[in-house]
Simulated assay, not measured.
Amino acid sequence: MGSNKAAVCVLSLVLCSLLAANTAAAAGCDASALSPCVGAIMLGGPVTPGCCARLRAQRACLCQYARDPSYRGYVNSPRAQSVVAACGLPRPKC
């Protein structure tokens, strides 16, 4: 069980790094700002108010993130879509 937690932590850090890597090219879009949503997206944990606030702030950027091959799978995942719905946002139409 401990190795699963370590793997999740490593995966979360990798995800945050990938999200941050392309922010320079995206004026106003900062995918690393979605880090409060990692637990909900990666582990199916609770969707927090902080996650929803960040998701709303980055809403205009979601299609850009979804097109990026580095993390397209995360953004388009069923868990990510359920987080969007839990925050009361419409599913992005890209």
Rank of each mutant, 00 (worst) to 15 (best):
M1T: 10
G2Y: 04
S3T: 14
K5A: 15
K5R: 13
V8F: 12
C9S: 14
V10D: 14
S12H: 04
V14T: 08
V14E: 09
L15F: 03
C16L: 12
L18F: 14
L18I: 09
L19F: 15
A20S: 13
N22V: 08
T23L: 00
T23C: 10
A24D: 04
A27H: 10
G28V: 03
G28Y: 05
G28Q: 06
S32H: 14
S32D: 14
S35P: 00
S35Y: 06
P36G: 04
C37N: 05
C37P: 02
V38L: 06
V38A: 07
V38C: 07
G39Q: 05
I41M: 15
I41C: 00
M42L: 13
L43P: 00
G44C: 06
G45F: 06
P46R: 09
P46A: 13
T48S: 15
C52V: 01
A53E: 08
R54C: 07
L55K: 02
Q58S: 12
Q58C: 06
Q58E: 15
Q58K: 13
R59T: 06
A60W: 01
C61R: 01
C61I: 04
C63Q: 05
Q64D: 13
A66Q: 10
R67G: 07
D68I: 02
P69S: 06
S70P: 03
Y71C: 10
Y71G: 12
R72M: 03
R72H: 08
N76W: 07
S77I: 11
S77V: 11
S77R: 11
S77D: 15
P78D: 10
R79G: 00
R79K: 11
S82I: 00
V83K: 12
V83D: 15
C87L: 11
C87A: 08
L89W: 08
P90V: 06
P90E: 10
P92D: 13
P92F: 12
K93S: 14
